[in-house]
Design a binder for these strands. Sequence first.
DNA 1: AAAATAATTTAGGTAAGACTAAATTACGAG
DNA 2: CTCGTAATTTAGTCTTACCTAAATTATTTT
Lengths: 220, 220
Amino acid sequence: MKQSTSIQDYLKRIYELTEGGTSASTNDLARELNIKPASVTGMIQKLAADKPALVEYQKHQGVTLTKDGKRAALEVIRHHRLLETWLVQTLGYSWDEVHEEAEKLEHVISEDFERRIAAALGHPTRDPHGELIPTEDLKMPLENSTPLSSLRPEQSGTLKCVKAADTKLLRHLEGLGLIPGAEIEVTDYSPFDHNLTIKVGQKTTVLGLSITRKIFIGER
Amino acid sequence: MKQSTSIQDYLKRIYELTEGGTSASTNDLARELNIKPASVTGMIQKLAADKPALVEYQKHQGVTLTKDGKRAALEVIRHHRLLETWLVQTLGYSWDEVHEEAEKLEHVISEDFERRIAAALGHPTRDPHGELIPTEDLKMPLENSTPLSSLRPEQSGTLKCVKAADTKLLRHLEGLGLIPGAEIEVTDYSPFDHNLTIKVGQKTTVLGLSITRKIFIGER
DNA sequence: AAAATAATTTAGGTAAGACTAAATTACGAG
DNA sequence: CTCGTAATTTAGTCTTACCTAAATTATTTT
């Protein structure tokens, strides 16, 4: 019932890649996990063959998580996001520094430890990037936000979440005031390159699609 | 330069077993690590053969740590003891609950994390059991205490440290007031079974050798 | 000092989980 | 529909770190 670090990483990535409803391809998984596609095939075949199967898998069709697999993935994700929150709140990490550390800790902490930090933090619902934290009974809350890339001039909202782990990018966004809670207004859109011009506080910035896709906006 | 979890465990145990100046035997190591002696032989041969050798080893003579091995061991021990301190101080763990959790975390935390918790705790010198925490430059401070088992009637002192990980024992000792800082006086000694009668506060207790060997007493 | 016993080492094996190279399958263009 | 490319899978290797069984070395007893 307790998975290895490797397996937990597979499950977490599969969860992320299948959030949109599509199945996760061997190649995508390999890229996300920084391993070779051939290695992925081996592992997902094993995960699909296991007694209580953690993934659903048909040759050349990609993988999805089973009920059990999803639970296990949400457990890891809960660990990760609680840890990030806690590193920021109690040890003064900044949001661009927490990812790596949480990535290692998430695999080794006990359920007891998880409960203790959740309680100490007041049972937070979002991590420092604004990502939703799965509940204690391992349900993922509904996200009511849309990617910034889908907004158009005149539209506005509150920055809910930044889906990124890259230190440089996060620092850059922070410099622009683009952190969870920020009020944003779209002032211009360029249909050719999908650039958006937005106003955050006093500042006006132009952002490309590769960034606007990672920023999620919700109701004020 | 970064060792696997297994190797770190070997080094830590070897450090502990050789603190008394003697070398660590294959069997003792196997017992401490809960693995078979044959497996220990294989690993220590590898550690001794490595480019910068971590252990000194001659067939049938047991192992000791090299300079490099000692540094690596102290790094792990520092992690472990800082973590225990920190689990107790910030998450409300009791001294009998921290061992297992620290045992897993010690292998994955970064140097940055180590520095942050050390600073947050005010650079403590002892962990919740009173064990000395290696300094940031990886020197083990001198311990100026002796085992309770070496004291005799009329002698007294302050409890400095309890070298034990067993939950039951630790809870028992706590119930008797035998925690770091306690003032202790020896009132009786039985030369046949080495039992000691001691007074802690109001309480008088008789302790066997297996316990008195694990309790360390120092100057008031 | 030889025999019995205990400790240690050798030899060979297994399981995870990665890799490379080669084979196969799927898919888009003509 | 067939060819070429891209994605995927198969097959076979490697490393780490454990295991068991058998052989060897050390130590203790008689």
